[in-house]
Design a protein around this nucleic acid. Structure first.
Lengths: 168, 168
DNA sequence: TAGACTGTTCAAAAAAACTTGAACAAATCC
DNA sequence: GGATTTGTTCAAGTTTTTTTGAACAGTCTA
């Protein structure tokens, strides 16, 4: 017989593990990432040995599907790497713990793409604004679009600085 | 007779208005805010005159409830202010367009609270870690928790710098 | 003070996001 | 090669979040 397994509880985690997992579940939520990602990263973070996909499934009580997808995302973000574990058929994972790397991955995967797509949308917008026949209206649009441009420019300026500050 | 009104389309918006609204819908999504917030802010941003709650309801085709709650959130974020419009019973809103203010509000409302709650959770964690009897394990926990602390410290350091850079 | 109007609240409905699990592909083993 | 194990994929199910709309509270008007 197995327990009902409430949201964040797994009888397989020690108190501290559970707390750290919860900590990261909250953390990734702020970043707009799903809870399973926080659970996985959190458990890896507070495990002294690398863990396999099956370890995660068992200890966290999540599905293989979630674990697989979560690990993929975390790898893409550069937040997790495969351990050089040797003699086992399965892959073991360990967390990247350098803030620089974590922030860099997040910026690369989650921020930059939006800044980039925003840039092209802005071009579109400028074209649409140019169609306006009323000069007053046109002037207003231009002013606002320029502001938008300046925001995005600032955004692009800030990212490298941010990475620099956070990278030691 | 009224149209089906698909997700983001309203026959009441000009092409440029629609594009700007979409732009912001995408934008706030990155920040983890609901679409209606993006719609409201977007329309205010590209309107040369302040708008009332009813204006928003009609032009965006959203419910009064959404508009009311969205405006509240935007006010809390400091992203929208009431216009000194005078002779009308209803309240008119205009967007705050200074990046400094927008970023400041977001940090104050969405980031700081999490950093603060994280700080207290970390304290809890340290207490739990102290209960560990195995010294090797204990050392590992301490090392990781220290890292967590250093991350949060960096976070708190970075925010004012960020605000400074973005504020002209 | 009744009537009209503006805006808020919140339970229920709808939509969006996430997770599951079973089918599948790929690699390893014997 | 056939059996076994590891990991991926994705449609369907579940959970969470957002939106709606009707009831209500507060204001103004006459």
């Amino acid at each position: 017989m197995d327990s009902p397994a409430s949201k964040t509880q797994s009888e397989n985690l020690s108190s501290i593990q559970q707390q750290v997992v919860d900590f990261f579940v909250d953390g990734v939520r702020v970043l707009g990432l799903p809870r399973s990602i926080g659970e996985i990263y959190g458990l890896l973070f507070i495990s002294s040995e690398p863990l396999s996909l099956d370890d995660l499934v068992q200890k966290l009580g999540i599905s293989k599907g979630s674990a697989s997808q979560g690990l993929r995302t975390l790898k893409t973000l550069g937040a997790v790497r495969e351990a050089e574990n040797i003699n086992d058929r399965r892959t073991y994972y360990e967390p990247a713990t350098e803030l620089k790397r974590l922030v860099g991955g997040f910026i690369r995967e989650q921020i930059r793409p939006h800044l980039d797509s925003g840039k092209s949308k802005l071009q579109q917008l400028n074209e649409t604004a140019a169609l306006s026949s009323d000069p007053t209206e046109r002037a207003f649009f231009d002013e606002r679009l320029e502001r938008l441009e300046s925001w995005m420019k600032r955004g692009r300026q800030v990212l490298p600085i941010l990475q620099k500050i956070l990278g030691q």
